[in-house]
Design a protein around this nucleic acid. Structure first.
Length: 428
RNA sequence: GCGAGAUUAGUAUAAUGGUAGUACAUUUGCUUCCCAAGCAAGGGGCACGAGUUCGAUUCUCGUAUCUCGCACCA
């Protein structure tokens, strides 16, 4: 477990411009969150890191970006129209709610009364909409509840374009939507969220080694995110809890302030999805090993990463409180490659034009080189340090009177608070 | 979606059926000011809607959102 309180993170995230409640000015909308300037940068840093690591740096991975709206047949074939729709019933006596298909509706399982169970109501987790001007059965579509189907539906396209050797993967990042009954716990469970998914296609007899490969890759990813090893836990999901398509699933869980919860999942999906498409679309999803007659529908290993859950784990891992001169100091110990602001540049005094002018010069040069550099001349120097600590800026550069003489600046470290003097040429 | 509780400034919190206070943050100015220093001045708030009342931030009802429990989480 962690000592970090979720409320502290939620407050800081709002106060400092990371994450705001969705539709805040109109009183909010349950299950939605908006990202502020620092939040979107942090989120993009995480997503870009993922793309670099799993797509750019590999030679067996192909990226795609499929449409969120898809033909309704996709969701019929995938099982989502049936299985994402739960018939719910309610007991008029004790107000208990149950899955109509899981209980004997003649008698309430909670209060034991008979004849109190009402009519079943359909509740579908998918957001339904209509595509085109006519709202009828044919025009029904859904906001995708997972990004995976956008990969499976493009499997044949990618194979036709590149015909890669097995094993190979298709990767995608994008939004997904689920009409959760009860969104909770900050960005952990929301109605609109972002996934980073890979479908890794393998020979049916070689799924186990690919699975192990991805277990290792997931762990490496957690290291790159800076998550402490002892806060990440590997859970072998028993058959009874696995999704209908999976023959093996590992959940990686994280010690969030709300408890130990799923950070990401790694599932062996067999050929469930491609076979569905093969059977329903009339198109062959079979793969032939080059130069052989070995022909089959590939099996799939699916590492599925939730962006928000990764981001929340990063924030929880980074959030640190310690004492300095008897005062509480809060800082985000973000890995440098994730920090939304890399450097902050300040003049020691903002009412000395010569200091401000020199600091502006350094700021411009650094911004041109590093991009995410912030200017801060507010209040006194101590306040600036604390403010930068809270948003996780690794280094603060200060221009003082000595800079004007020998062109050296002070570099102050976020984690140690130590300062060193370097020439401005060294940091620009 | 059910049950309970909550909602006061950017954040954290007081009080009140009769002009809403504090801390931090924020803005402006002064100070050769390196870890939330000091001084001076300023801006900003009762979630939304209806009702009761001479008057509602306060009481009542509804809505939204949040928290906790239940349920849900292919």
């Amino acid at each position: 477990m962690t000592d970090v309180k979720l409320d502290d993170i939620v407050s800081l995230a709002k106060r400092r411009g990371f994450i705001y409640p969705g539709s805040d000015v109109y009183g909010g909308l349950s299950g939605t969150w908006d990202y502020g300037p620092l939040g979107v940068q942090l989120k993009r840093n995480i997503m870009n890191l993922w793309w670099t690591m799993f797509v750019d740096e590999r030679d067996d991975m192909y990226g795609v970006d499929a449409a969120i709206l898809m033909n309704q047949k996709v969701w019929q074939a995938s099982g989502h129209v049936d299985t994402f729709t739960d018939p719910l019933v309610e007991c008029s006596n004790c107000k208990g709610r149950f899955r109509a298909d899981k209980i004997d509706t003649s008698k309430c399982p909670t209060c034991g009364k008979t004849g109190t169970i009402g009519e079943a109501k359909q509740f579908n987790m998918m957001f339904q909409t209509n595509v085109g001007p006519v709202a009828d059965e044919k025009s029904v579509s859904y906001l995708r509840p997972e990004t995976a189907q956008g990969i499976f539906t493009n499997y044949k396209n990618v194979v036709d374009s590149f015909y890669p050797d097995l094993p190979f993967g298709i990767a995608q990042q994008g939004k997904a939507f689920r009409n959760e009954i009860s969104p909770r716990d900050f960005i952990f469970r929301s109605r609109e969220f972002e996934q980073m998914e890979i479908e890794y296609f393998v020979h049916p007899e070689k799924w186990e080694e690919a699975f192990e490969h991805w277990v290792g890759q997931c762990k490496e990813w957690f290291t790159v995110l800076g998550l402490p090893e002892d806060m990440v836990h590997e859970l072998e999901v028993p058959a009874s809890d696995r999704a209908h398509y999976s023959k093996r699933t590992i959940d990686f869980e994280f010690d969030y302030p709300i408890g130990r919860e799923e950070l990401m999942g790694l599932a062996y999906r067999t050929d469930f999805d491609l076979k569905n498409i093969h059977d329903n679309s009339g198109k062959s999803m079979e793969y032939t090993i080059k130069g052989t007659n070995d022909k089959f529908i590939p099996h799939v290993i699916e590492p599925s990463f939730g962006v928000e859950r990764a981001l929340m784990a990063v924030l929880v891992s980074a959030y640190t409180e310690d004492e300095q001169n008897g005062e509480k100091r809060i800082y985000l110990k973000l890995p440098e490659h994730l920090a939304p602001v890399k450097f902050c540049v300040s003049p020691l005094l903002k009412n000395k034009p010569e200091l401000v002018e020199k600091a502006r010069e350094v700021y411009k040069a650094m911004k041109a080189k590093h991009g995410n550099v912030m200017w801060d001349d507010n209040g006194n120097i101590g306040k600036r340090y604390r403010r930068q600590d809270e948003i996780g800026t690794p280094k603060c550069i200060v221009i003082d009177f000595q800079t004007l003489e020998d062109d050296t600046v002070t570099v102050r470290d976020r984690d140690t608070t130590e300062q060193t003097r370097v020439t401005s040429a060294e940091i620009v």
